[in-house]
Design a protein around this nucleic acid. Structure first.
Length: 909
DNA sequence: GACTCCCGCCAAAGC
DNA sequence: GCTTTGGCGGGAGTC
């Protein structure tokens, strides 16, 4: 066990800590490698007995110690040993246990002195991870004693720190006390990745990556001072915070010491590194770029080779651990200047809402407490904006309102008798409760299946499932049809008709039933229209929802419409397209402001118009300062057109920026005031186009139309069996159509009630790749959609009742039903008329809606989305090939990346 | 020769 | 003052 003394005895004081030693139960050994988790899981979820001190055939004896020492000091012996070790390497590549060396023919030298490869951090991390279950039960003792682990893994503790630090950055472990950590496994991973992605977006890493790449392309970026200063200036023009560690609620570091060196700590570096993957598209980050960015945040001016090398070293350390976690994979990008090491994200796709996926995986899982999600973002934000020093990123004023609103809502929710109970397993890790408590009793195989399914399906689902984080922020649990959904239904509520308790506002969403499918829909009304129901409350909106920008709408031109139809049937392609479309969009969104900021801004546009203008001005300033480089923010897929797009692009973009905010549906009233009559007419026409109906005469500003039982797995609570059947069928519909379950209101109904722009927010919508692929067709020919309207249109009578009930229409007025228009209001059409759509919608819209209402609404580069979206894989659009290859093909095979002005070949090692 | 990344020194922080 | 933690860079191993 102490063979490593050769390593440890050379000066480290860490051989035997004075820390009170744990007992056997402290370390929940996994008993097997990850690949053997099934066997592991079959066992009771109690702490498995540690293979206690089964000394790996090499007891710590004076003799062995002497031999080891001799080996250590003798290069010849070492090399001989290493040769032997190497010959056995193939058998030992993935050892899961310290006893892996048992079969090494008893050569004590070999055992005592593994080769360098065997000591690699990646391998060590494999061993480390193999000791613990991915999803530990809270019933277990999830404590890690560093001494113990170091001892058992036969490494010096210093190496364990490296691993633990990276794991800590992902909140897979947390420090409990000196020399002691808690193992959380992957329970928090999705949440952490969400947070990291968000922070990465807010930190404008996309811009930085693009900037660095651009610099590299334009000049041969090297380390001469002039260019570094150039880049440094560019960095300076980007607002980026001095980001500290991103924490999750309940996972905060307890000791201030942990943050003492946080600015350069492996933790923070690791998080930043991950962020780079999460915000970039393709999700390939070269070490060089990563190092430059990480250095750039500190002091790029002082960039020198030694610092760069050091950063690279650390990145290798981090990458090794991340690779062991199967979050990234090493690849190489070959370009003109040679082959460069890079890493590709192979972890789960991270959308703001991965919790939906979790719910899908575990239908009986208690939904994560909303407070967690809220607090998660809160915490993230809190840490992103440390109180110290330069604080370029400050909380958006509207975010403060949001926070207050959320806090109020949270209080209401949690104080309510039927409030969801936050099940916190331990005081130290409330996050553990969300999953393990439910998973624990699940039979091992079932769990394995679930995990397996989640692995396979999480990407597409996560891409479409919307933002749990966002959504949970925006909608209280009562809005979400969780298994515990009945808690939301007031006793007076009818099963499928009633008013949702207001979560963020005094304006309750209407719940519209669907008589055929049993699906109910919630309409969130804009205050300007909802004043007929209740008092205006500016915070009525689902504020944190990143608003659908209408870029997609604009970008969805007819050309693209034609193109995307060719992608039908290719689920993978469609999924990839979705990813690309989304990521491209997302990057575009990141550019000028954060999604939350944007959403907030728009949701409160009426009130904060002045602020918006100010903010926009800031954007423009930023744009100006960024100058040329801003163009490079467009995804690589479109950057082939960099040379083609000059000031026109900027101008166009500027114009769109100017008009975008005015075109939010929530601002419709204001727009009406501000627009010229022609503009207003045009807007109406646009909406009419979006609805594929003649321009209505009057409009309601906007609202959310939410299919309440757009059920994910397990979201069936509160409906009868009969309704369940309907829902089940609906699920199929949902899977087969990107628009299923979205808009149950016919055009005529909309017209009759003068609702011009419903915001469709199908939550928990899950779309299969095929459904995505079907999107173009469906969108292309809305009227022919077999499932869009038929299954989801609510009964006009009930709609009438509802609208009358809430006073939206006079009692005598009936909403006419026009069968011919039953299918008309497709969500993707409708959505364009408003920006009060959540992130999920944003993605869906980007992806699903080729309908192009001629409403210029988004400041982001529409072409970017268009091109991403309408790209034909393998097509001639070389500029787009980057995304195509990166997100899909390239994951499984070598591909060719085309980036601006040069070709990248991605190869995997 | 470039790329990887192990190794352990040593200083900061914690106890 | 000892221990823990971890930044850091030399330099060995690998390709």
């Amino acid at each position: 066990m102490q063979e490593a003394g050769g390593d440890m005895g050379t000066g480290d004081k860490e051989n035997h800590s004075s820390e009170p030693r744990r007992n056997v139960l402290e370390t929940p050994l996994k008993q097997a490698a990850t690949s053997q988790s099934v066997l592991t899981e079959i066992q009771p979820l109690t702490t498995p007995p540690k293979p206690k001190e089964t000394p790996p055939a090499d007891p710590w004896t004076p003799t062995s110690n002497l031999k080891m020492l001799i080996s250590a000091v003798s290069p010849e012996i070492r090399s001989r040993d290493q040769r032997r070790e190497l010959s056995n390497n193939a058998r030992d590549v993935l050892p899961a246990k310290p006893c892996l060396q048992e079969h090494l023919s008893g050569d004590e030298y070999e055992k005592s002195h593994p080769s360098r490869k065997e000591k690699s951090l990646g391998l060590l991390c494999h061993k480390f991870l193999a000791r613990y279950p991915d999803y530990p039960s809270t019933a277990e003792n999830n404590y890690i004693c560093l001494d113990e682990v170091a001892e058992e893994l036969n490494v010096e503790r210093r190496r364990i720190y490296d691993i633990v630090n990276v794991l800590e950055s992902l909140h897979m472990v947390s420090r409990l006390a000196k020399n002691r950590y808690a193992w959380h496994g992957r329970h928090n991973l999705s949440k952490t990745l969400q947070a990291l992605k968000k922070v990465g977006e807010e930190n404008k890493y996309t811009q930085q990556i693009q900037m660095i790449k651009k610099r590299e392309y334009e000049h041969d970026f090297d380390f001469d001072g002039e260019r570094n200063e150039d880049v440094a200036r560019s960095f300076g023009s980007i607002e980026h915070s001095e980001m500290s560690f991103v924490e999750l609620p309940g996972m905060e570091f307890r000791a201030a010491s942990v943050n003492s060196r946080k600015d350069k700590s492996l933790r923070v570096m690791s998080q930043k590194f991950v962020m780079l993957f999460l915000v970039s598209s393709p999700q390939i980050v070269s070490l060089e770029v990563a190092a430059k960015i990480l250095i750039g945040e500190d002091q790029l001016e002082d960039l020198d080779k030694s610092k760069f090398k050091t950063k690279i070293r650390r990145l290798y350390d981090i990458a090794n651990v991340l690779s062991s976690l199967e979050l990234i994979k090493k690849v190489h990008v070959t370009e003109e200047r040679g082959r460069k090491p890079a890493f590709k994200w192979t972890g789960p796709a991270v959308l703001p809402n991965t919790q939906d996926t979790k719910l899908e995986m575990t239908p009986t899982t208690h939904p994560p407490p909303i407070s967690d999600s809220i607090a998660s973002k809160e915490q993230c934000s809190k840490n992103l904006f440390p109180s110290r020093g330069k604080q370029n990123f400050t909380r958006h004023p509207s975010l403060i309102k949001l926070v207050k609103s959320i806090e109020n809502d949270r209080r209401k929710i949690q104080s309510a008798p039927t409030s969801p109970v936050k099940i916190s397993a331990t005081g130290t890790d409330p996050n553990l409760s969300a999953f393990p408590s439910q998973m624990a009793p699940v039979p091992a195989i079932a769990k394995q299946q679930l995990e397996g399914q989640s692995k396979k399906a999480k990407e597409p689902k996560m891409k479409l499932s919307g933002s749990a984080l966002e959504f949970s922020l925006s909608s209280s649990p009562e809005a979400a049809p969780k298994p515990e959904a009945p808690r939301n239904v007031t006793p007076s509520q009818q099963p499928s008709l009633g008013l949702c308790p207001p979560s963020h506002s005094a304006v309750p969403p209407l719940i519209l039933p669907h008589p055929h499918s049993g699906v109910s829909y919630a309409i969130y009304l804009h205050p300007s229209q909802a004043h007929t129901v209740t008092a205006y409350n500016p915070s009525f909106m689902l504020q944190p929802l990143p608003c659908a920008n209408v870029t997609g709408a604009k970008s969805m031109n007819s050309k693209g419409l034609n193109t995307i139809t060719t992608e039908e049937g290719d689920g993978q392609t469609a999924t990839d397209e979705l990813t690309k479309s989304w990521t491209a969009k997302e990057r575009a969104t990141v550019k000028s402001e954060t999604s939350s900021q944007r959403c907030l801004k728009r949701s409160q546009a009426l009130q904060e118009n002045n602020y918006i203008k100010r903010f926009r001005s800031d954007e423009e300033n930023l744009d100006t300062s960024l100058g040329e480089s801003i163009k490079n923010e467009r995804p690589p897929s479109t950057s082939s057109q960099v040379n083609d797009e000059t000031d026109d692009f900027q101008q166009e973009r500027q114009n769109k920026t100017e008009t975008s905010d005015q075109n939010t549906a929530s601002c419709y009233e204001q727009c009406k005031r501000e627009d010229t009559p022609e503009d207003e007419d045009k807007t109406k026409q646009d909406i009419a186009v979006a609805f594929a109906i003649p321009a209505p005469e009057t409009f309601f500003p906007s609202g959310y139309l939410i299919p309440l039982t757009q059920c994910t797995h397990g979201n069936k609570a509160g409906v009868s069996n009969k309704e369940k059947a309907g829902i089940c069928s609906l699920q199929h519909t949902t899977y087969s159509s990107p628009i299923a379950g979205v808009i149950p209101v016919t055009a005529s109904e909309l017209k009759a009630v003068n609702i011009p722009a419903f915001h469709i927010t199908p939550f928990n919508i899950m779309l299969s790749p095929t459904s995505i692929a079907a999107a173009p067709v469906l969108s292309n020919s809305c009227l022919s959609s077999s499932n869009a309207g038929s299954a989801q249109n609510p009964s006009p009578s009930i709609l009438n009742f509802t609208l009358q009930h809430v006073g939206l229409i006079p009692a005598g007025v009936q909403v006419p039903t026009s069968p011919a228009l039953q299918h008309v209001p497709q969500p993707e059409s409708v959505c364009w008329s408003s920006e009060h759509v959540n992130l999920q919608e944003e993605k869906e819209n980007n992806f699903l809606s080729p309908v192009q209402p001629p409403v210029p609404k988004e400041p982001q580069e529409p072409q970017q989305v268009t091109e991403n979206f309408f790209r034909t894989p393998g097509g001639p659009n070389t500029g787009s090939s980057l995304s195509v290859n990166s997100d899909g093909t390239e994951r499984t095979s070598q591909g060719t990346l085309y980036i601006p002005q040069r070709k990248l070949e991605v190869s995997q090692d």
